[in-house]
């Protein structure tokens, strides 16, 4: 069982510290997206990386449409990894939708976690009465269509392609093969589970302290959403980043590292 989980979720463990830092990737990518961040924490923490089932180099035969049709199935992946590695006192770092996945996991089993670090979180993406999520339902439907259309182009994402990396040799073949390569059906289901999720009612249940890293000009998680989270998450710290867009851990890794280090003290 334990071994299976480690293979199933392509779990990687490294670093010289004892306290675990568990990094969870968001929708669209896999654990490789943390590669600019983890070196800064390797010395002091035990780094744990994994891919959700269906993403990256996870075991796709373990994919179950019923399980992964809601974020609870993804939260179960997080808990499975925690259980398999017997993690305790874990600092959970989740990007985008993984912030809420981490929240669900920490509500269910708070004993595994010491802190949640949420990078670009949103409890609900769709506008609802007074709540500003940033999207209308039809926007999300359009996104699904764009993704659908890129399945044809996604043959490239899936094919090993080493050429063109000459200028960045540190990005080896391994990365090129797997990065962002996702089964189209799985990707579409992940998109639905993500963008149609509404976890606003779960926020008050979180007892674990959290850090909200809010980006500037992030259309996926606009600043209104960050403010909403701060108001509704007890014991939370809010930081508005200079980084623009939705992927500060890739566009502004230094700033991201700085805020995480400052928070962890």
């Amino acid at each position: 069982m334990q071994k299976n989980i480690l293979v199933r979720n392509n779990v990687k463990v490294f670093g010289n510290g004892t306290q675990p830092m568990l990094f969870a990737h968001g929708f669209g990518c896999d654990q490789n997206m943390w590669r600019y961040i983890t070196p800064a924490f390797e010395e002091d923490y035990r780094i744990v990386l994994f891919d959700y089932v269906g993403a990256g180099k996870s075991d796709r035969t373990s994919y179950n449409a019923e399980r992964y049709s809601s974020l609870h199935g993804y939260a179960q992946d997080v808990l499975d990894v925690c259980e398999a590695l017997e993690l305790q006192d874990t600092i959970f770092v989740g990007h985008s939708v993984s912030s809420m996945v981490g929240l669900l996991a920490a509500v269910e089993k708070p004993e595994y976690f010491s802190n949640l670090i949420m990078v670009g979180p949103s409890p609900c993406y769709i506008n609802d009465a007074d709540y500003i999520g940033g999207f209308e339902r039809k926007d999300i439907e359009e996104l699904l269509e764009t993704m659908e259309r890129n399945y044809i182009g996604w043959a490239n994402f899936l094919a090993p392609n080493i050429m063109g990396n000459a200028d960045r040799p540190e990005l080896g073949q391994e990365l090129t093969e797997s990065f962002c390569s996702t089964d189209p059906v799985i990707a579409s289901q992940f998109a639905k589970a993500t963008f149609f999720s509404d976890n606003r009612k779960d926020l008050f249940k979180l007892k674990v302290p959290s850090l909200i890293l809010q980006c500037s000009e992030d259309i996926i998680a606009p600043v209104e959403v960050g403010n909403y989270l701060q108001e509704n998450l007890s014991n939370s710290t809010f930081k508005l980043m200079k980084a623009k867009g939705h992927c500060p851990h890739m566009s502004e890794p230094e700033e991201t590292i700085m805020y995480i280090k400052e928070y962890l003290g």
Binding site: C29, E142, I220
Partner: peptide, 10 residues
């Protein structure tokens, strides 16, 4: 809008 999400996530 949908391209923006796709741009950010993929």
């Amino acid at each position: 809008l949908s391209t923006r999400i796709f741009y950010q996530t993929h």
